[in-house]
């Protein structure tokens, strides 16, 4: 797996893929989807797909791929090696969603939540396989959110393909296990060799597992917090772990789509209370009742000053 394309710019989403085995373009195929790194506050979330001809299912099972969580890192690397060597009939692809992509998606003006991002990434990978000429007949997915809804969504998007969404699919279907290994290996490698775009100064890179409950991760988050900028792009800003720390330790930043209490926000924006429209002396309570600044100035947000 060559991580080069991602490492040249680790602030965006990036897809890496194996060669498409010729046999996958002629025979009916099955495809598994799984993800790695959904929970951690650090590093990317990686989506993996793995596909092979339906006829080779048993062969894949015999290669002893298993749920990536039950394996050690070394075992996963070994199994990925096996998969890569079985390139005559097994193909794979991964989509690396950088932590920056996750942060900016979840924190943008129109919120794009992690589930939607996950679904769209999975759909994108299935479409990629179809576009590459893989004869997909069966798709197996480990669920994100309610399984039946997700299954209905995928079935509708890909008519003619039998979609199976199951919790724990990674331990039920070998092709999903294989996908989970691809995803996990990609994530491990990316996290291990993360190229910080920021000048981290004295801060070490011993950040532990990256999960919010890891004391090492928490300690690292505290250490690398910048009062103005917050965190390097390696950190998912949208995670409450990061947000809570920034709220308490960093400078407060106000955005114009911040949610504020109605009354308070209205007052700050110099809006009138609804009630004022019904009372007898509506209006006329500006600071300087005799003079109303001309709209040339108010439209351009220009004001006179009395002190510097």
């Amino acid at each position: 797996m060559d991580l080069g394309p991602f490492e040249t710019d680790n602030s965006v989403s990036c897809r890496l893929a194996s060669q498409i085995p010729d046999v996958c373009k002629t025979e009916d195929c099955c495809l598994g989807i799984d993800e790695a790194g959904r929970g951690p506050v650090l590093g990317p979330m990686v989506y993996g797909i793995c596909f092979c001809p339906v006829s080779k299912k048993q062969q894949l099972k015999d290669s002893k791929v298993a749920d990536s969580k039950t394996l050690s890192e070394a075992e996963r690397e070994k199994l990925f090696q096996n998969l890569d060597e079985a390139k005559s009939y097994v193909g794979w692809a991964v989509q690396i969603l950088s932590p920056n992509t996750i942060s900016t998606s979840m924190l943008q003006r129109t919120k794009y939540n992690l589930n939607a991002l996950s679904h769209d990434t999975a759909i994108g990978l299935v479409q990629f396989a179809l576009d590459s000429g893989v004869q997909l007949k069966e798709v197996y997915v480990d669920t994100v959110g309610p399984a039946d809804k997700y299954e209905a969504k995928l079935s509708q998007l890909f008519p003619g393909i039998e979609v199976t969404v199951r919790p724990k699919a990674d331990s039920l279907f070998p092709v999903v296990s294989a996908a989970s290994i691809c995803a996990k290996v990609a994530r491990d490698r990316v996290v291990k060799g993360w190229n910080f775009a920021e000048d981290m100064g004295e801060v070490d890179t011993d950040y532990g597992s990256g999960y919010p409950n890891d004391p090492k991760t928490k300690a690292w988050l505290l250490k690398c917090l910048d009062p103005v900028f917050g965190y390097p792009q390696f950190v998912r800003f949208s995670w409450s772990t990061a947000q809570t720390l920034m709220d308490s330790k960093a400078v407060t930043v106000h955005w114009d789509d911040d949610e504020e209490d109605g009354e308070k926000a209205a007052q700050r924006q110099h809006n009138k209370s609804m009630l004022s429209y019904f009372s007898a002396s509506a209006g006329g309570k500006d600071q300087n009742p005799s003079h109303q600044t001309h709209r040339f100035l108010t439209e351009r947000r220009l004001k006179s000053l009395c002190t510097l």
């Binding site: 955005w255 114009d256 947000r301 220009l302 004001k303 006179s304």
Partner: peptide, 9 residues
């Protein structure tokens, strides 16, 4: 004269 451009956020 001195005028200030001033907008929230």
């Amino acid at each position: 004269e001195v005028k200030a451009f001033e907008e929230d956020f």
